[in-house]
Structures are given as structure tokens and as C-alpha cells.
């Protein structure tokens, strides 16, 4: 029983990491209709900025806040400069553009910050409690708390404010939104800025729990984050969190109990996604697009 609970806790520990990046992916999809494959590398780059700021002597929490603001500005500028020229292009073209961004940010990170691993300190004490033989880390608690707050704020922003309404309207039907007086250009920049800031927060909280910051830090996480979002539904913040947790737990349990799959444990969470998407193509919490003509 203790082993089982320990593995569940391991799964949650990884799941919250996937979920925190997944939230940024959901936000950008909800507000711009784009799947941003560069989300992980944008987070990586801004985490390097956080690290650089701590080196300049800023306390970690302040470095995180400042780098989130910089990430917001950077994300908005990326929309304006890199994405905007392809606004009228097909979704496939945009996917290629975000993959280009992925490569560019990874290369820039190596260029500016080198290849050796950087240690980013935690913004909170590193604790480990043993509860009935199961270890609970402060990392996990902090990430869960941050995710809960993020979900609540995102929900409030998107469902309860005029700006959120405008953001969703532009993602769904930009021409109509403009005819009603919404500046689509501003909303798209806002969506990218917010997602970049969330990604930055995810990176800055996740990296200290790993073996250090390198150019490859986010790539594994991005794959699982996408998997979690596909499972939970691309348009649902809650879905990103639940999806990320399910992926993390399924992976951990497979490692423990199915030795036959050692080395290829990954097929269990992905098999699970396949089944869910066959039965519910919109994901567990996603919405079906309703359109009559």
C-alpha cells in the first residue's frame, strides 16, 4: 500500500510539472486558436532570464516576477513580429512557424547562456515530510497551490471579465469581433503575453526540482504537457491539470508494476490518450464545437 501511494505521489509530482506548462498551452489556444509548439522553449529561455537575474543579486521570487513581466512583453512582441505576418495563413503554416520558434529559442538559449547546467535556487524552503511512509515534498505542494491559483485566475479572466470575453471572441471569430469594436490585434498580443508569462512561471518553479537548467530541460516536459492537454481538452484549463496528473500517475504506476514495459513505460499514458480520444475526441473536459449552417 505504501509503495502504491508513494508511486501515486511520484506521479502527482511529475503531473503538476506537466500541468503547469499545459496551462500555458491551453491559454494560448483558447485566446488565439494556435497550438504553440514553442511554449516549452519560450519557458526555457525566460527561465534562463530568471537565472540571470538571480545572478545579478535579485531574490528568487523577485527574479521570477521580473522575468514574468519580461516574458509577457516578449510574448506580445513575438505575436506582433513573428506570428502576425502569417495571420491569414493556414493553421499548418502557423504550426511550422511555432516549430521554427522552438528551434530558434533553443539555439538562442545555448548561444547566450552556454551548454553547462545552471542551478536555479528554489523560491521557498525545500522540505520533505514523511506521512505514513509516503514522502511529500514542498515542491509538490507549491506547484499544486500555484496551479490552483492559476486555474482560478484564468477562469475568472476568461469567464467573468470583458477582456476575457473579447479574448475568446477573437479566437473564435476575429472578423466578427472586430466588427463589434474589439481590437483583435491587441487581444492576440495579450493572449501570447499572458501565456508566455505563465510558461515562465512554470519553468522557474519546475527547474529547481530537476538536476539543473540546460537547453534540453523543457523538451521532455513539453511532450508530456501536450499529452496532458490532449487528454484533458485543448480549451480547458482544468483539463490541462487533470490531464497532466493522469499522465504523471499512469507513468509512475507503470514503472512500478509493469516491469515488462521497462524503458518504454511511455506507451501506457499514450495508449490511455488514444482510448480517451477515440471515445471523446474533444478530451475529458473540452467543449465540442457546435455549428449549424
Amino acid at each position: 500500500m505504501t509503495v502504491f501511494l508513494s508511486q501515486i505521489m511520484n506521479g502527482i509530482q511529475n503531473g503538476v510539472i506537466y500541468a503547469s506548462l499545459g496551462l500555458a498551452i491551453v491559454l494560448i489556444f483558447r485566446t488565439t486558436g494556435i497550438l504553440n509548439f514553442a511554449q516549452g522553449e519560450m519557458a526555457l529561455f525566460s527561465t534562463y532570464v530568471t537565472w540571470e537575474l538571480t545572478r545579478l543579486g535579485l531574490p528568487v521570487w523577485l527574479a521570477i516576477i521580473v522575468s514574468m513581466i519580461l516574458a509577457f512583453i516578449g510574448g506580445a512582441l513575438i505575436e506582433r513580429i513573428v506570428i502576425r505576418p502569417f495571420e491569414q495563413s493556414s493553421p499548418l503554416v502557423l504550426v511550422i512557424v511555432t516549430i521554427g520558434l522552438f528551434l530558434a529559442f533553443n539555439a538562442l538559449a545555448q548561444l547566450f547562456f552556454g551548454v553547462e547546467a545552471k542551478a536555479l535556487p528554489r523560491a521557498y524552503p525545500d522540505r520533505n515530510w514523511l506521512i505514513g511512509g509516503v514522502s511529500l515534498r514542498s515542491d509538490t505542494l507549491v506547484l499544486i497551490a500555484v496551479l490552483a491559483v492559476e486555474c482560478l485566475l484564468l477562469w475568472a479572466l476568461l469567464q467573468r471579465t470583458k477582456v476575457g470575453l473579447a479574448l475568446r471572441a477573437v479566437a473564435s471569430n476575429a472578423d466578427s469581433a472586430r466588427l463589434l469594436g474589439v481590437s483583435a490585434a491587441t487581444m492576440l498580443m495579450l493572449g501570447w503575453g499572458l501565456a508566455a508569462a505563465l510558461g515562465c512561471l512554470a519553468g522557474a518553479l519546475v527547474v529547481p526540482t530537476t538536476s539543473g537548467l540546460t537547453a534540453g530541460s523543457m523538451q521532455g516536459i513539453l511532450v508530456f504537457a501536450f499529452a496532458g492537454v490532449a487528454l484533458g481538452g485543448f480549451d480547458s484549463p482544468i483539463g490541462a491539470v487533470v490531464g497532466g496528473l493522469i499522465i504523471g500517475i499512469a507513468d509512475a504506476l507503470t514503472r512500478q508494476y509493469v516491469p515488462a514495459l521497462a524503458g518504454i513505460e511511455i506507451i501506457v499514458p499514450f495508449g490511455l490518450i488514444l482510448v480517451v480520444l477515440l471515445l471523446r475526441p474533444q478530451g475529458l473536459f473540452g467543449h465540442v464545437k457546435v455549428e449549424r449552417v
Binding site: L165, A166, R168, A169, S172, L180, G181, V182, H287, K289
Partner: peptide, 19 residues
């Protein structure tokens, strides 16, 4: 008609008052 299909009827109407 320019319906914003992903929004509810009420959200569409509120969007009309955006300005």
C-alpha cells in the same frame, strides 16, 4: 450573420456592448 459560435447567446449579446 457573424455568429461567434463558441460563445453562448448571452455572451454574444454582451460582446455587442463591448464599445
Amino acid at each position: 450573420r457573424g455568429t461567434v459560435t463558441d460563445l453562448t447567446v448571452e455572451e454574444n449579446l454582451r460582446l455587442g456592448a463591448y464599445t
